[in-house]
Design a protein around this nucleic acid. Structure first.
Lengths: 211, 211
DNA sequence: GCTATTGTTGCAGTCAGTGCAAGTTTGCAC
DNA sequence: GTGCAAACTTGCACTGACTGCAACAATAGC
């Protein structure tokens, strides 16, 4: 079962996907976020502008290599079904990192993406915001996770739903800030560092509340 | 100093502003969010489409009556400079509510807005997200607030900046969820209820972290 | 090879949002 | 009230994201 046995169609799809990602990253790095049009990306990737939207739902998704929203839902349910973590925060942070994994791409693309995040923090804000919006399916997966925790046994479904959404939202914010911070210091790029920093942020929040 | 003494120019501006808000709310309520175009809003408000952008930066802002982002910054600094609250979370929640005050409009508009939030939760997500993005000035105001708290005296500026942004982000999420929840139960519409609910969410988050 | 499925593309179109320049209205000082 | 400067409105032309549709091309599986 070598890679080439995956079928011609599937390989072409992967290839086009990769070319679009590469083109998006390279052009935005060279010309800037606003200056790069989808049309330009398509020319470089040698596909029709219309085809672009068969692979990504918007420009930002191509730049950061995010999957389509619908796929995020499935991924979330699958991920949280099995994994057992120390606490819900850790589990959700891990989920988010697995959705939006800066390590997954080829080294060159990865380095370029980090630079793009440095130059355009807005990218991270916009893309991570999508996780929150994604039909609430992700939040629902978190709710299932919380229900397994005996400390939340007494809560109503409505309370648990709100709390799940809030947990997800807060983790998104923490991960965004932590990523930006850690990315700014190139030597420290490490998913564990990002996670630690995000976790630290949540812990500090505790201190603000009961004064 | 009656209202009419405010100058003709200022009064006309207020009037146009109000007409645009009314038109946006009425049309979205009647036709739906996607179906309502800026052009239609302008026709109803009897102004040119080009003029719309002298008052709002996008469609959603008109629908919910949000001020321009630049004004939000000033407001935040002013608000947090004087007010002293029990804790930072409470202060930030109060700030956000003052920025985005569902009570401020005329009764009819207000009721319609609540219905629109019920029908299109996305409105709240998108608009409150802007607060986070607004040039970081709002986050900076929160940082000043945190620095006044002796419990955070030992932190570096970088830590404090991150923590301020995280605090702001979490409060935005909490307020969004709490607003949607409270708005869904029409009898309970009360800013205090929203604030209590948001505060409760943050408190619950604490319980998730140290398992 | 034949056929159903899947992917690509061009086309035509809607709509948000921007810059510019010309025209109009208001504020204000004299 | 005259005249000038500032603020506001408007039309125009434009860019660019994004969508639906229908024709065409390529692949998979038999």
């Amino acid at each position: 079962m070598s890679v080439s046995s995956a079928g011609l169609r599937a390989r072409k799809r992967q290839d086009t996907h990769a070319r679009l990602e590469e083109a998006a990253v390279a052009l935005v790095l060279r010309d800037g976020l606003e200056q790069t049009t989808i049309q330009a990306i398509c020319e470089r990737a040698d596909v029709s502008p219309r085809t672009f939207f068969n692979y990504f739902d918007c420009k930002d998704s191509a730049i950061l290599g995010m999957q389509q929203p619908a796929l995020l839902d499935e991924h979330a349910q699958e991920f949280l079904r099995d994994v057992v973590h120390a606490d819900a925060i850790t589990a959700v942070l891990a989920l988010l990192q697995s959705m939006f994994d800066l390590r997954s791409a080829r080294p060159q693309i990865r380095e370029d993406r980090l630079e793009l995040i440095r130059r355009h923090p807005q990218l991270l804000v916009n893309q991570l915001a999508k996780v929150t919006q994604a039909h609430g399916q992700v939040a629902q997966a978190v709710q299932v996770l919380l229900r397994r925790d005996p400390r939340f046994a007494g809560h109503s479904d409505a309370d648990l739903a709100d709390l799940a959404e809030f947990t997800l939202g807060s983790c998104v914010v923490a991960l965004r800030i932590a990523t930006r911070e850690v990315v700014a210091a190139p030597d420290d790029l490490d998913s564990d560092h990002i996670q630690q920093r995000a976790h630290w942020l949540v812990q500090q929040l505790v201190k603000e509340i009961d004064a």
